[in-house]
Computed example of a mutant assay.
Amino acid sequence: MSVGRGSAVVAIVLVLCLVLPCDMVDAASFTVGGASGWAFNMVGWPKGKRFKAGDVLVFNYSPSAHNVVAVNKAGYNGCTTPRGSKVYQTGKDQIKLVKGANYFLCNFPGHCQSGMKIAVTAT
C-alpha cells in the first residue's frame, strides 16, 4: 500500500510542476517598434496586437536620446510625468504588463508630443 501512496504523491507533485508555471509559458515578448525600436510615431504600434498580463514589452533605444516612463492615463494624455512615475533609462528595458491599461512615454522634451508614447491594454 505505501508504494501506491508514494506513487500518488509523485504524480501530484508532477502535475503541480506542470500546472503552476503556466503563466510563464504563456507570456509573450513584444519589441516595441519592431526592428526600428522605440522611436517617434509609436502611438499606433499596439494596434492589432493582443496583450496579456505578464507579457513583456522590450524597449530598444539609445539612452542618450530617449527613455521610457511608465505613467498613468493623465500623464499619457497630457504628456507629463506624474510624481512617482517609474523611469527606465537602460536602452534595453523589459517591462512586464499588468492587467488593464499600461501607459508609456518618452519624457525628453517634445518626444511624447511627437508620438513617442503607447497605450497598451492587457487582458
Rank of each mutant, 00 (worst) to 15 (best):
S2V: 10
S2F: 12
S2A: 10
G4K: 09
G4I: 02
R5I: 11
R5S: 08
A8E: 12
A8P: 00
V9M: 00
V10S: 06
V10M: 03
A11Q: 03
A11P: 01
V13F: 11
L14S: 10
L16P: 03
C17G: 14
C17T: 10
V19F: 05
L20T: 08
P21F: 05
P21R: 03
M24Q: 05
D26P: 05
D26I: 12
D26M: 15
S29D: 12
F30V: 14
F30T: 09
T31D: 09
V32F: 05
V32K: 03
G33N: 00
G33C: 06
G34V: 02
G34M: 01
A35E: 09
G37D: 03
G37C: 01
W38T: 02
A39M: 04
F40K: 13
F40Q: 11
F40P: 00
N41I: 00
N41E: 10
M42V: 02
W45Y: 07
P46Y: 03
P46M: 03
G48S: 08
K49M: 06
R50P: 03
K52N: 13
A53R: 02
A53M: 02
A53L: 01
G54P: 01
G54K: 04
L57K: 01
V58I: 07
F59C: 02
N60M: 07
N60F: 04
N60G: 04
N60T: 11
Y61P: 04
Y61F: 14
S62L: 05
S62P: 01
P63I: 02
S64A: 10
H66G: 01
H66K: 03
N67Q: 08
V69W: 03
V69M: 01
A70N: 06
K73H: 04
K73F: 01
C79G: 04
T80Q: 01
T80L: 05
T81F: 00
P82W: 01
P82D: 00
P82L: 02
R83Y: 10
R83S: 15
R83M: 11
S85A: 14
Y88C: 08
Q89S: 13
T90E: 03
T90K: 11
T90P: 06
T90W: 05
Q94K: 15
Q94T: 07
K96M: 11
K96C: 06
K96S: 09
K96R: 15
K96P: 02
K96Y: 03
V98D: 10
V98Q: 15
V98E: 12
K99F: 04
G100D: 11
A101T: 10
A101G: 12
Y103M: 14
Y103N: 07
L105D: 04
C106N: 07
N107A: 11
F108T: 13
F108L: 13
F108M: 15
P109T: 09
P109E: 08
H111Y: 10
C112M: 08
C112V: 00
Q113T: 14
Q113E: 15
Q113L: 15
S114G: 11
S114M: 14
S114C: 09
G115V: 12
G115S: 13
M116G: 04
M116I: 09
I118K: 08
I118H: 07
I118T: 08
A119M: 15
V120G: 12
V120R: 13
T121L: 09
T121K: 14
T121I: 11
T121H: 14
T121S: 10
A122E: 12
A122D: 13
T123N: 14
T123Q: 12
